[in-house]
Design a protein around this nucleic acid. Sequence first.
DNA 1: CGCTACATTGACCTTGCTCAAGATTAGTGG
DNA 2: CCACTAATCTTGAGCAAGGTCAATGTAGCG
Lengths: 238, 238
Amino acid sequence: MGSTSCAHVRDPRECEDCSARSLSVCSALDVGELDGLHEIARSTFYPNRSSLFRQGEPSEFVFNVTEGVVRLARLLPDGRRQIVGFAMPGDFLGVSVHATYGFSADAVEDVAACKFGRKAYEDLVASKPHLLKRLHDFSANELSLAQDQITLLGRCTAEERIASFLLHMRRRWAVVRGKPSVTVHLPMSRQDIADFLGLTIETVSRTISRMARDKELTVVPHGVRLSDVRRFEQLAAA
Amino acid sequence: MGSTSCAHVRDPRECEDCSARSLSVCSALDVGELDGLHEIARSTFYPNRSSLFRQGEPSEFVFNVTEGVVRLARLLPDGRRQIVGFAMPGDFLGVSVHATYGFSADAVEDVAACKFGRKAYEDLVASKPHLLKRLHDFSANELSLAQDQITLLGRCTAEERIASFLLHMRRRWAVVRGKPSVTVHLPMSRQDIADFLGLTIETVSRTISRMARDKELTVVPHGVRLSDVRRFEQLAAA
DNA sequence: CGCTACATTGACCTTGCTCAAGATTAGTGG
DNA sequence: CCACTAATCTTGAGCAAGGTCAATGTAGCG
């Protein structure tokens, strides 16, 4: 514990509630409990703005987010930034073939996560083919989602990107919370959304403002309320 | 056999040379032979412009490309297209958790591939944990490459995208052929490159023309010759 | 040789970016 | 609880990268 900067252990008990939902970004799969994994994990608390790990650091740990949203960011050498995903409760983080993390993971609100030592994790996975199969399926699903994002960035307009993003977040919260809601919680900043969608903060702000002006949504603290989900599904297309 | 449209069997012998290199797109990993896999595969020939499979079809087969380049394309409902990758010799194709293929796979030159029935493939994988571990590692690596592509599409200029693409293809051919070359083989059309990089055909053409005018490369039939690889590495940055 | 695909080039236009000025919100200390 | 500050967000004006439309050039192939 504590080797990751800004992390504080909230609860020294073994992690009781590690139901993995994805390898590094988002996933709608619900797989229930991953037997054995919880036995090697520790529940850890990460306050808003703290890092779970940083790009380039040795990938010593694997995480399973249990509460809050984590921003996954890649930094280019010249400072440009691309958010490759937002990890939400149930998501797995830090699984990689590489010796170092490929992106930084930062809490954009207070976060709780189960933290696994990589070696213990690898050993456990090696000894449980069924567990490995599930992780492999997750990772194939992650790949498919990454390809959705590639299509979005390569071929969609600013409006389509925003609409897709809002629906995407809504869908993910529906999985986490168990029921869908027209109010979408967005703990990340406009800059984070912009860097996720390959836009500028001004374009994100303008597009959301225009949607609000057109009564397609209402801006609320740390989120938006969609007036007509159908309308957004049309806009999203992709 | 030949249930896949336009496919012709070149050689009915069991596939002898299935060394997988990646799950669906590109990968620089070289893993040698995947024991057991070749025993359930058949080598099949796909002439230029034929499809290995199409988006939405039931994902009945898994493929390992042994020769040629395969274009992996997603089509949006309104006709916009995004190429999510080019599969090259050694690459694996069609591995997915979903019941249908998430993209179409088309030969952009004459292609040879080993074709596995999905059930036989699944059974084999289930019975060989070591094989599954390798496939899982591939898929985690694929995810990392997809994130590179996301960063490229989200944050890079047209020039940077072209430069990255050319270097990327060069690197991949170096792995396939065993040695790097300043001449990069590009069997796909300008339109395919554009749809891969999230650009238009005109921008791809103009950018390559300008690079040729500036003596950074020479356009050759089905490819380019890089005058100074360093120069491109600077341009690529990401 | 002539057809068809594909590629290149030019002129013009649009989307989204840049720069800059306010407005709002969140955080902090009195 | 309020005032002050800093960060974040919004809005506007102007600009530029890349898209669109259209014409021309070139290569592959029967």
